[in-house]
């Protein structure tokens, strides 16, 4: 089995799945109906991405497991999503900031992945690049709106940024395995992604009048399966039915 591809697909799949889960929790909680639809739409896109990445992981693994098995039968120590994805829905500013910080990564990531030497990854990116282009348009507009809206909205947004910034460093960590994948043109380079990402977020924060936090301590662990306490609850909820009725088909 190609371990490197398996691990990469899992990380991506898990990140999409957990982020989708957080957005799904917002269903019927939006500030107005149109935004509720937008959120569920993005949640649905991310879920589609998760399904594709996890299906690829399952296929690469070659042990007869399915995407569902990977989503529903691994425990929290076997999940490799970014810590940022599991941050709770504290308020609309947090939700939108978390989303924007991800979108600013996922869009250039998919753009690079489209050129992957691995045709499966390139195929997934083909779809992802279109969706993520829309997502970043949506979230960056909200960052600007809230930043330029009222004093209250600006303060809440800055709070969200200050809180979440700590979790962004991890998104650009990579190991030897991933360095090789990048060198071989299978995945985009993490260094380049970071440069693009930083440029995008700084531009949007600048327009929104937000202060980019000074580089400080960055949290890490998601990529090794060491998460915040929040993830366990999310997974317990997500997996409850297949775990409680292991013989049932759904």
């Amino acid at each position: 089995m190609d371990n490197a591809i398996y691990n990469y697909a899992l990380r991506m799949g898990d990140t999409c799945l957990i982020l989708s889960h957080r957005l799904a929790e917002r269903c019927s909680n939006g500030p107005f109906l149109e935004e509720d639809i937008a959120m569920t739409n993005i949640s649905l896109d991310l879920l589609g991405g998760a399904d594709l990445f996890l299906s690829l992981a399952a296929e690469v693994e070659g042990e007869g497991r399915s995407a569902d098995d990977l989503a529903y039968r691994r425990n929290e120590r076997q999940y490799y999503n970014h810590l940022l994805a599991e941050r709770p829905n504290k308020n609309f500013a947090h939700v939108m900031m978390r989303q924007f910080l991800h979108d600013a990564l996922l869009h250039p990531l998919y753009t690079g992945l489209k050129l992957s030497k691995n045709e499966h990854l390139a195929g997934i990116a083909e779809k992802g690049v279109k969706e993520s282009a829309y997502h970043i348009r949506h979230s960056s507009m909200w960052i600007v709106r809230l930043g330029k809206g009222t004093d209250d909205s600006k303060e809440k947004l800055q709070d969200a940024l200050d809180d979440l910034w700590t979790y962004t460093g991890e998104m650009f960590e990579y190991n030897d395995e991933e360095a090789t994948l990048a060198k071989d043109g299978v995945i985009p380079s993490f260094e380049e992604l970071k440069t693009t990402w930083l440029k995008t977020v700084k531009e949007v924060f600048n327009e929104a009048g937000l202060e980019v936090p000074k580089d400080k301590w960055m949290a890490t662990g998601g990529r090794q399966g060491v998460h915040s306490e929040f993830l366990g609850h999310m997974i317990a909820e997500m997996q409850y039915l297949p775990r409680a009725y292991p013989d049932a088909k759904w």
């Binding site: 109906l33 639809i37 937008a38 829309y134 949506h138 507009m141």
Partner: peptide, 15 residues
């Protein structure tokens, strides 16, 4: 419903 043109465009697209 939307609060500005860009939002109207996005909401229309989603709906």
């Amino acid at each position: 419903h939307a609060f500005d043109g860009e939002m109207a465009l996005q909401n229309a697209r989603d709906l």
